[in-house]
């Protein structure tokens, strides 16, 4: 969890830096009076790196996956609830008095 969170923060910083670098690049282009077609290659690489790190962090931070299969060890139904709305009290407990201990 700790490592995943750290990676996520670094990934977000990467993304922020890529955004900042792109805007800087555009202002430079404005001075040079050139058309903006796409950000420079190293910014694109940084962007994808940051994205991958954020993906990884999103998977790692939120914990383990839970099974959705009905027959898995966690979800397997072993018994039904004891239909308490239809509880009747006329049973053998009548002759087996409750022992406080």
């Amino acid at each position: 969890m700790g490592v995943g969170f750290g990676v996520g923060v670094i990934g977000l910083l990467f993304l922020a830096h890529a955004a900042y670098a792109t805007s800087q690049y555009r202002s430079v282009l404005k001075i040079l009076e050139e058309e903006f077609s796409s950000p420079p290659m190293n910014v694109v690489i940084e962007l994808f790196l940051g994205l991958a790190m954020c993906f990884w962090a999103a998977m790692a931070v939120s914990g383990d996956f839970l099974s959705i299969h009905p027959d898995s060890e966690d979800n397997r139904v072993v018994s039904l609830p004891g239909n308490l709305d239809f509880m009747t009290f006329n049973h053998r407990g009548r002759v087996l008095p409750y022992n406080q201990n």
């Binding site: 060890e73 966690d74 979800n75 397997r76 139904v77 072993v78 018994s79 039904l80 609830p81």
Partner: peptide, 8 residues
Amino acid sequence: MVGAKEAN
């Protein structure tokens, strides 16, 4: 429903 995990 009582699952195996809850029963444990």
